[in-house]
Design a protein around this nucleic acid. Structure first.
Lengths: 331, 331
DNA sequence: TTGAAAGCGGTACCAC
DNA sequence: GTGGTACCGCTTTCAA
């Protein structure tokens, strides 16, 4: 059942049917009704490929994220998908994995789909060396690229970022004020965001005249038990506070404390990141940073719409985070 | 830059270029190489819409899930996406929300995309009344429909299910053997899966000559704190065990116990569902059912490929679950 | 307000 | 192994 069939059945030309499908104002109401009736009776669905062929745009955006099973990215995808759909856009999802080459390939593949814009989710896309992100610039030559919590300098690339630096700076400062002098910095990658957090941690120490202890910079796998096991191997560290770049790592630290009989928050204070369900599942409940994922996504979609209307938008938007105090920092 | 440009530059016909693009064996190696070179030099990308127009299939499948921020569905999407991509299929994602009308609409919209198959994720798509699922049967008239942990009777509909009934039956039986006589059944919906679980719970009681206490069938919102609060309002229930249909609910019960000074597992034993990160984040760590989401997804994709090869497949596949014992059921 | 017809960029069949 | 060409189903201009 195609546009010709409908035209024949309705006794009009295909041009008129096309106009009805696209709700053009230049069709007589009676004609419109007649055609609509025929379309419904025959369950007519316009072929999206033929439409895409004849037009330059498609109303679809590509979403690439390293791993949708990550709570932060899942929430981001949910939010982006919902909002984009409200604007009539479809989402093509590509979970790339964390490997550099895989990410490059994912972007390459999704670009073939003639999408209207590309959204890169998670700070894992930024960071690293410059040549590692060259594929993002190339993509931006074709369509606008929006980076959710990431940023790469370049024409047609737009970063919407959480102020991870400040959030960690503030959290670290609180621990310092509480008298903590051996604060563990627990991370699981060298993403853009992780580097920002690290800088916040370091600057807070510097600005309070405290040394940065290299042995307290620990990088682990992002699982609760992985983190716990790693820490059990390093009992010598004798830390009195933890700043973690993910809630899962923070919970791992909690499990380590439990396993070794160290009390939280009395002996060790812990701060997590992302305000995920994990942070209220654990015991004691975790003080954590709300990285405002929803706001980032909302801003990204709004910016995209503004851009597609032909207006200019900022190439970098920074959103303030918010520390959610629970019980792992009850001083 | 289209196929005509490439053909001109390479000094061949568009038919030959098309053959090269599709890696047809009927092209001279030298010609192939020559054309490839021109394509690369000009960053040629075939227009997917034109391809889709000329062919009947598109190599894309539609994924619909109520909420990707749910851990189970996120993992399922991740797994499906990965495997489908390995077979050269794209994924179009649609997060529908839990509302019946929204789900129907989501399916309707995604069908327009001329996808090769539809995958419905989560048991929320089954269950309810028959007319509520009629849209699934309609979809199945166009393309095969695969239901991940759901099932609706119908031509061209394939259910891949976890054996939730048996899993809950077994878990309940264990609690009964341990002497529990007031086991709370904690759920958050009337999905197909929830009904199966409920039946397992009930049958375990019946088969051991125990009464089913209606006041112990509690339906709550699926959040940790929501569950805890609900339970705090029902301190009269005096239950000595909990079978929860989601880990989040089980953790909520743990939080309730903690808030009221009840000890777990001594006074109350708790069993969760899904073996999510939540279940190892909480304290004590949760005994939970591994619903084998990965296996379900793998099976679904394999079945789809088999079907598309023209072979017949089972309309219903049931996968055994696995109880992961941790510390909320240390008797 | 409507219709005719020229694309859009491929695929695939048929000749040679 | 290669080229010519008739579609695929829709959008959009141009005329009427």
């Amino acid at each position: 059942m195609n546009i010709y069939d409908i035209a024949k059945l309705a006794g009009v030309s295909i041009a008129t049917v096309s106009r009805v499908v696209n709700d053009s104002p230049n069709v007589n109401d009676k004609t419109k009704e007649k055609v609509r009736k025929v379309m419904e009776e025959n369950h007519y669905m316009p072929n999206e490929f033929a439409r895409g062929l004849g037009r330059s745009f498609v109303k679809a955006v590509g979403l690439v994220c390293p791993a949708i099973s990550d709570d932060y990215m899942a929430k981001a995808v949910a939010c982006l998908e919902k909002r984009l759909r409200e604007h009539g856009y479809d989402c093509i999802l590509h979970c790339s994995g964390y490997d550099k080459e895989d990410k490059r390939q994912a972007v390459g593949m999704i670009l073939k789909k003639r999408i209207d814009a590309l959204m890169l989710i998670g700070s894992n896309f930024a960071g690293g060396k410059e040549e590692d992100t060259s594929y993002i610039c190339e993509a931006a030559r074709q369509i606008p690229v929006f980076m959710i919590n990431g940023y790469v300098e370049g024409e047609n690339i737009y970063g919407i970022l959480a102020d991870d630096y400040q959030a960690v700076y503030d959290a670290t400062e609180e621990l310092i004020f509480a008298g903590k002098r051996r604060i563990l910095f627990l991370s699981n990658s060298d993403s853009f965001s992780a580097m920002q957090k690290r800088k916040g941690y370091e600057d807070a120490h510097k600005n309070h005249g405290l040394p940065i202890l290299e042995e307290l910079n620990i990088c682990v796998e992002n699982t609760i038990n992985g983190t716990k096991d790693q820490l059990l191997l390093r009992r010598d560290l004798a830390f009195d506070g933890v700043i973690a770049t993910e809630d899962g790592l923070a919970v791992g630290a909690l499990k380590y404390a439990k396993a070794t009989g160290i009390s939280v928050p009395e002996e060790i204070s812990v701060v997590g990141y992302n305000n995920s369900e994990l942070s209220i599942s654990c015991e004691p409940e975790l003080t954590t940073v709300d990285a405002r994922g929803e706001i980032l996504c909302k801003t990204a979609v709004d910016s995209m719409m503004t851009l597609l209307e032909g207006k200019r938008i900022n190439s970098k938007t920074i959103i303030k985070c918010h520390l959610v105090k629970r019980h792992t920092t009850d001083f």
